[in-house]
Amino acid sequence: MLKDIIFSMVIGGMAGIAGHVRKHGKIIMPRKTKRFIFLGFLEEMLLGSVAAFLIMIYTTPNSMIETIFLSALAGISGDIILTNFRALNENKEKES
């Protein structure tokens, strides 16, 4: 079970990186500014890994194909959720 969870997190992280490259056209490295730390591609990778971890714990797939499919889907979904969250914050700022 632990091997499946680790494998799932790796697949989810790779899907997160693929979503990052699709969105930005390149890999943006982490950097520190005066106000905050920008995580770059690590943000999407971590979000994809956590999403894949949660999906694995919740569903417990029976085969390796299901594990790969659900992990990749979770990694891509993590990127979509992050994009929607940012859009909602921007809309709140514009209304204020």
Score class of each variant (00 low, 15 high):
residue 2 L to W: 07
residue 2 L to K: 08
residue 3 K to W: 03
residue 4 D to A: 09
residue 6 I to T: 11
residue 6 I to Q: 12
residue 10 V to W: 00
residue 12 G to W: 08
residue 12 G to N: 01
residue 13 G to L: 05
residue 13 G to S: 07
residue 14 M to Y: 06
residue 14 M to T: 08
residue 15 A to S: 02
residue 15 A to T: 01
residue 15 A to Y: 01
residue 18 A to I: 02
residue 19 G to D: 04
residue 19 G to R: 05
residue 19 G to V: 01
residue 22 R to A: 10
residue 23 K to M: 05
residue 24 H to L: 05
residue 24 H to A: 08
residue 25 G to L: 04
residue 25 G to C: 02
residue 26 K to I: 05
residue 28 I to G: 01
residue 29 M to N: 10
residue 29 M to P: 03
residue 29 M to W: 03
residue 32 K to Q: 14
residue 33 T to Y: 10
residue 33 T to A: 03
residue 34 K to C: 04
residue 35 R to L: 06
residue 36 F to I: 02
residue 36 F to C: 05
residue 36 F to A: 12
residue 36 F to K: 06
residue 36 F to T: 04
residue 38 F to R: 06
residue 38 F to N: 08
residue 39 L to S: 13
residue 41 F to R: 09
residue 41 F to Y: 15
residue 43 E to C: 11
residue 43 E to H: 15
residue 43 E to Y: 10
residue 47 L to P: 15
residue 48 G to R: 03
residue 49 S to H: 03
residue 50 V to D: 02
residue 53 F to R: 07
residue 55 I to T: 04
residue 55 I to V: 07
residue 55 I to M: 09
residue 56 M to T: 07
residue 57 I to S: 14
residue 58 Y to H: 09
residue 58 Y to Q: 14
residue 59 T to Q: 13
residue 59 T to L: 08
residue 59 T to Y: 12
residue 59 T to I: 07
residue 60 T to M: 05
residue 61 P to C: 04
residue 61 P to A: 03
residue 62 N to A: 05
residue 63 S to N: 13
residue 63 S to D: 15
residue 65 I to A: 12
residue 67 T to M: 07
residue 69 F to R: 10
residue 69 F to G: 02
residue 70 L to E: 02
residue 70 L to F: 10
residue 70 L to H: 08
residue 71 S to A: 10
residue 72 A to E: 09
residue 73 L to E: 01
residue 74 A to F: 02
residue 74 A to D: 02
residue 75 G to H: 04
residue 76 I to A: 14
residue 77 S to P: 04
residue 77 S to C: 00
residue 78 G to E: 06
residue 81 I to K: 11
residue 82 L to T: 15
residue 83 T to F: 13
residue 83 T to W: 10
residue 83 T to V: 14
residue 83 T to Q: 11
residue 86 R to D: 15
residue 86 R to P: 11
residue 88 L to E: 14
residue 88 L to Y: 15
residue 89 N to P: 03
residue 89 N to L: 15
residue 89 N to H: 13
residue 91 N to H: 14
residue 93 E to Q: 13
residue 93 E to K: 08
residue 93 E to Y: 04
residue 93 E to I: 03
residue 94 K to L: 12
residue 94 K to M: 06
residue 95 E to F: 09
